[in-house]
Design a protein around this nucleic acid. Structure first.
Length: 886
RNA sequence: GGGCCUGUAGCUCAGUUGGUCAGAGCGCCGCGCUUACACCGCGGAGGUCGCCGGUUCGAGACCGGCCGGGCCCACCA
């Protein structure tokens, strides 16, 4: 995290000498105000605030090597609305921004952009100049990439990220995110690396991190182990092959398999213990076709009688069930698939027959795909394939970024306990889920599903080169073997370290890799092992205990629903293990953006409409309005129409404000004096507004920003269309000289001032630009640090007025308008002799506001009030006709 | 296979504990340059609230079933 910039007290030119302009526009507000906010430090976090005053946000760091799309604009706006609300509520908001530059997308981008690849075995080169600069577009073959040290690679990554960050920051600033831009971090930065390593070492010290050599899911393309959280089940075409195994008495046992190439890896045949069909075979031995390996027939309850033939060949390893059988039945390990996804070159010793060894020789070095064809051909030749393979669509596990099914290979890996094999910890983590306030609440189900379904601990090591290194070394014994059970760990003060170039305490560099020396762990951590610590990273866990005590546990984690099982869960695990608490109190989950076909908006489509293009075309307030109109957790349509409505609203705010402020003067602004509000209609309007304030506040406190916006917006349009029209003439003080402002005129002006003041604050979280612009016309400072409105003053001014009076008078006005509309005449047309028939309940109210109705309706002649028996207001004019309203 | 969300005017969506809730905006049609706003205003038409049962004096709202849409978890013989 970089050092903070103290807020400047100097008013900027953007704010100085602002006044109500002759013509208003929303264009250009972004430039003016985003600059002013930056100059004035409007959103700078005051780190002297006590914990109770602080509202801290664990912002999702966007992947800088990708590009931002409309979905980002959508969800980040939600967070910003929350941030602005709490800031106005008087909380000191810590709203940082991170950049995710740790992981495969960045690794690939740096490779292509600079034409390099990471090789941790190489030494750091000072002043390294990459072969390509900005070499994107030119396809650089992997073989042509220049190998560089991990430190050089990370430097290039940081260099490239810095360029991306500028663009991202520009977009966020223009969108109006109220981020404190002095608080940024990078997930591959030194702070994040040190935090990740320290947390890992603490896990290690407490026994929560451990190593194990075990079969695990493996991606043959990326050649790395893959965690459960990174799996994706996809449809994958396959075929059932009926294969005959041979009994000692010459009989056959037929199994069905979709992986015939694993036949040489077979260690047993397994059926359900209750399966009548195979009772007589349990305990006997069969031999495999082609390879002639003797195999036991065993019983295990995980075998499913109705799957395939009901008896399965257990291979090491075809799937996770094989792993279970292997473990529980203590079967031997006979691996034939290597880490590159090819059949191992050396013919295994368990295949002893000359024929079997010859067949294996044909398979050696082949991909599993080619090996399958070869095995099938051989089985056909030997007569052990019964019938033709039957095509089937099966589900296979894929690494979410990979395109080949995962294999299961045995490897030594690091794990962190996450409750996957520990029911007490699982129960604790489920309890944490119940403790966390999900918005919307039903999103907790995804958390529960995931934690409940974990089948192993969190695999955190990856056999990649770019990332945060696992911070341990191993001593090498005199025989040259690493002692994995006695890892050498660095001092926390030395973090971050890179074991591939740094040397453990007590050793010298020339002891690397030699008997009696040491070797660095070659692996890096899963990116989630870093991302899961974003609360610790931003709150200063590493070296700022004061900040940490004021900000952690944090208040809010905003994020997408797709990464509940990864980011959210792993963060909960880390905070639970390290702090014994939740990392935050609230989790706000945004939905997807759907294209008009109701499909999740694809990246390609999302990129056609660039976020910056949207902001430029419609204006930031407009785009924010669209985003804020969607509830948390609900998918929303990408709808330009909604942005146009937002733009219209922002413009309306400017125009209505300009109008209200026109009743003041430079030396005597529109009053904010509740005691001057005396007219029933004015009081009624403020009574309605007071209710809106209470309800909108309650909605925002409950993380329901759409409800708050809807309430405010509905009130505002009625305020403009009815109230403003009704009080217009009275507010002008028609006829009275400037010096003689009547109480009725003063009442209107004060009510208008109070309403405008309140409405601007209510709109500020969603429309930061338009509201700030208006604020600058008549108030000091920024609306975004102004206190959130409360209903108290409004209620005092309103007294016992009935808010329904505005609607009643509005209905009367509507009736007069309708008479004109249906007569197809201008609204300016005078009504010369009309009768207003109102429901009994409205009579007193409309009578109290009759002068306003008369003026607004241009009822220049007589306007009689009569009581009707219906529930509608009827206007009758001798010349124009009759109309019924509401 | 288990589970979550969702189905209200052409479109996007509100409808808080069951009783003026059948609504808003957009779009559409008509009218109007009314000195805050033509980047506007006024007025209008539009729906048997997915379908079938049930609870209730009364159900978009509650229960059951079915159908449609989106998604999560499990599923590799």
């Amino acid at each position: 995290m970089s050092e903070q910039t103290p807020p400047t007290a100097t008013p900027t030119s953007a704010r100085a000498a602002r006044q109500v302009p002759d013509r208003v526009t929303v264009d250009g507000l972004e430039d003016r105000w985003s600059r002013a906010w930056a100059d004035e430090g409007t959103y700078t976090f005051d780190r002297t605030a006590e914990r109770e005053q602080v509202y801290s946000i664990d912002t999702p760091p966007p992947t800088v090597s990708g590009s931002l799309h409309v979905g980002h604009v959508f969800s980040y706006t939600h967070t910003d609305v929350v941030a602005r609300f709490w800031r106005m509520r008087g909380r000191e908001v810590m709203y940082p921004m991170g950049w995710d530059d740790n992981g495969l997308p960045t690794e690939r981008r740096v490779q292509n952009y600079y034409g390099v690849r990471c090789d941790p075995s190489l030494p750091y080169v000072e002043g390294f100049v990459p072969p390509h600069e900005g070499g994107e577009g030119k396809s650089i073959k992997p073989g042509d990439q220049v190998p560089v040290s991990r430190r050089n690679f990370i430097e290039l990554c940081e260099r490239l990220s810095a360029e991306d960050e500028l663009q991202f920051e520009a977009l966020w600033r223009r969108l109006g995110l109220s981020v404190d831009w002095s608080m940024t971090y990078q997930t591959i930065g030194a702070t994040a690396r040190a935090v990740s390593q320290r947390a890992f070492l603490r896990n290690l010290g407490r026994g929560e991190a451990y190593q194990a050599e075990a079969p695990g899911l493996w991606d043959v393309t990326f050649q790395t182990a893959v965690a459960q959280a990174e799996l994706e089940a996809r449809d994958y075409p396959g075929a059932f092959h009926k294969v005959a195994f041979h009994r000692a008495d010459g009989g056959q046992v037929v199994i069905e398999t979709t992986r015939p190439e694993l036949l040489p890896a077979c260690v047993a045949l397994i059926a359900h213990p209750d399966d009548e069909r195979y009772q007589h075979l349990f305990g006997t031995t069969v031999t495999s076709p082609l390879f002639g390996v003797a195999l036991p027939v065993l019983a295990h309850p995980a075998a499913e009688p109705d799957k395939g033939a009901g008896i399965a060949m257990c291979c090491t390893f075809g799937d996770l069930t094989d792993v279970q059988w292997w473990r529980e039945l203590r079967l031997p390990t006979r691996s034939v698939v290597g880490r590159d996804g090819r059949v191992l070159r050396d013919t295994p010793e368990w295949i002893t027959s000359p024929d079997g060894r010859a067949v294996y020789g044909e398979l050696a070095g082949k991909t599993t795909f080619s090996a399958r064809e070869a095995v099938v051909a051989a089985l056909r030749g030997s007569g052990d394939l019964l019938g033709d393979p039957v095509a089937t669509q099966r589900k296979a596990n894929f690494y979410e970024k990979g395109d080949k099914p995962l294999e299961i290979v045995t490897s030594r890996q690091w794990y962190i306990r996450n409750g996957g094999r520990d029911e007490d910890l699982r129960a604790d983590l489920l309890a944490r889920g119940r403790e966390l306030a999900f918005h919307p609440d039903f999103m907790r189900v995804r958390y529960d599903n995931w934690v409940g379904g974990l089948n192993g601990d969190w695999l955190v090591s990856r056999q990649r080169f770019f990332g945060v290194p696992i911070p341990v070394w191993y001593p090498i014994d005199e025989a040259g073997e690493p002692l994995y059970d006695s890892p050498l760990v660095p001092d926390e003060a030395a973090l971050p370290v890179d074991p591939s170039s740094d040397v453990p305490a007590g050793y010298t560099a020339d002891q690397r890799g030699v008997p009696g020396g040491f070797v660095g762990d070659p692996d890096i951590m899963d990116t989630w092992a870093t991302s899961s610590l974003t609360p610790q990273i931003v709150c200063g866990w590493l070296d700022d205990p004061d900040l940490f005590s004021r900000t952690f546990p944090m208040d809010l984690r905003p994020q997408g629903q797709d990464i509940i099982r990864t980011w959210l869960f792993s963060s909960v695990v880390r905070a639970h293990l390290e702090e014994g608490t939740l990392p935050w109190k609230h989790a706000a989950i945004s939905g997807w953006i759907l294209d008009p076909d109701r499909k999740k908006m694809s990246k390609s489509k999302g990129n056609v409409v660039t976020p910056m293009g949207l902001l430029e075309e419609h204006g930031s307030d407009a785009v924010r309005y669209w985003a804020a109109s969607a509830r948390l957790g609900t998918d929303a349509a990408f709808e330009v129409g909604q942005m146009k409505i937002g733009r219209r609203l922002a413009i309306k705010v400017l125009n209505a404000s300009k109008f209200v402020l026109s009743f003041g003067a430079a030396d005597e602004p529109v009053p904010l004096d509740a005691s001057q509000v005396t007219e029933p209609l004015d009081r009624a309007m403020l009574a309605g507004l007071a209710t809106v304030v209470d309800q909108a506040t309650a909605a925002l406190e409950a993380y329901d920003h759409t409800r708050a916006l809807e309430l405010t917006e509905t009130f505002f349009w009625t305020f403009c269309d009815d109230y403003l029209e009704l009080v217009k003439d009275r507010a002008y003080g028609a006829g009275a000289s400037a010096a003689e402002v009547t109480p009725a005129t003063a009442s209107a002006r004060a009510a208008l001032g109070l309403a405008l003041d309140t409405l601007l604050r209510l709109f500020a979280p969603v429309l930061p630009y338009a509201t700030e612009e208006v604020w600058s016309w008549w108030r000091e400072g920024t609306v975004h640090r102004a206190p959130w409105p409360t209903s108290g003053t409004l209620r005092t001014a309103a007294g016992d007025a009935d808010a329904g009076l505005v609607a009643g008078a509005g209905a009367a006005l509507a009736a007069l308008r309708k008479v004109k509309s249906e007569a197809k005449v201008s609204m300016r047309t005078p009504v010369e002799h009309a009768v207003l028939e109102v429901p009994p309940a409205l009579r007193a109210g409309v009578e109290a506001a009759l002068d306003d109705v008369r003026n607004a309706g241009r009822a220049t002649g007589t306007l009689e009030l009569a009581v009707g028996d219906g529930e509608t207001v009827v206007a009758r004019d001798a010349r124009l006709g009759e109309a019924v309203a509401r």
